Computed example of a mutant assay.
Amino acid sequence: MATKETLAELKKNVESYIGQKVILKTNKGRKRVFVKEGVLEEVYPNIFVVRIDRGLNSERKVSYSYSDILTETVEITLCGNQLKIQAS
């Protein structure tokens, strides 16, 4: 079970990668998995925001909660590394 300390540690971990390119792998259920590349832009107490460049001067911002990482609905991997951001 996730405790407040686990979420705080996860938030600190995500916060240390602000401004870096990440690969998001999102599980939308029923075998639908989306993989997108973006920049980790902002971190808030309950959510984090990733800016996704969709080409042709179009970008989109998506937000996820830290519990999405804990429940493995979202996986974050740093570009260039195979380092995954996950709960300890």
Score class of each variant (00 low, 15 high):
1 M>A: 02
1 M>Q: 04
1 M>P: 06
2 A>E: 00
3 T>G: 12
4 K>A: 09
6 T>K: 06
6 T>S: 09
7 L>N: 00
8 A>T: 12
9 E>L: 04
9 E>A: 06
11 K>G: 03
11 K>R: 15
11 K>Y: 07
11 K>T: 09
12 K>Q: 13
12 K>C: 09
12 K>S: 12
13 N>D: 05
15 E>S: 12
15 E>H: 12
15 E>P: 10
16 S>K: 13
16 S>A: 13
16 S>D: 10
16 S>E: 13
17 Y>K: 15
17 Y>E: 14
19 G>Q: 10
20 Q>T: 09
22 V>P: 03
23 I>T: 14
24 L>E: 00
24 L>C: 04
26 T>D: 01
27 N>L: 03
27 N>W: 04
27 N>G: 06
28 K>P: 04
28 K>D: 09
30 R>P: 04
32 R>I: 14
33 V>A: 02
35 V>H: 07
35 V>W: 07
35 V>F: 11
35 V>I: 13
36 K>Q: 09
37 E>F: 06
38 G>H: 00
38 G>V: 00
38 G>D: 01
38 G>Y: 00
38 G>A: 00
38 G>N: 00
38 G>W: 01
39 V>N: 14
40 L>A: 02
40 L>T: 02
41 E>T: 04
43 V>Y: 01
43 V>D: 01
43 V>S: 00
44 Y>I: 09
44 Y>S: 11
44 Y>W: 12
46 N>K: 15
46 N>G: 12
48 F>G: 03
49 V>D: 11
49 V>L: 14
50 V>I: 10
50 V>Y: 03
51 R>G: 06
51 R>N: 09
51 R>Y: 05
51 R>K: 13
52 I>C: 07
52 I>T: 10
52 I>Q: 03
52 I>Y: 08
54 R>G: 07
54 R>S: 08
55 G>Y: 03
55 G>N: 04
57 N>P: 07
57 N>L: 10
59 E>W: 06
59 E>K: 05
59 E>F: 11
62 V>K: 01
62 V>D: 05
63 S>Y: 10
64 Y>V: 04
64 Y>P: 03
65 S>Y: 07
65 S>V: 02
66 Y>H: 02
68 D>W: 00
68 D>G: 00
70 L>H: 05
70 L>M: 09
70 L>A: 10
70 L>W: 05
70 L>S: 04
71 T>R: 03
71 T>W: 03
71 T>L: 07
71 T>I: 07
71 T>Q: 05
73 T>N: 07
74 V>H: 00
75 E>Q: 06
77 T>M: 15
78 L>K: 14
78 L>C: 13
79 C>L: 10
79 C>I: 09
79 C>S: 11
80 G>Y: 15
80 G>C: 15
80 G>L: 15
81 N>L: 09
81 N>V: 09
82 Q>H: 14
82 Q>I: 13
82 Q>A: 14
83 L>M: 15
84 K>W: 11
87 A>I: 00
87 A>Y: 00
87 A>E: 02
87 A>T: 01
88 S>G: 14
88 S>W: 08
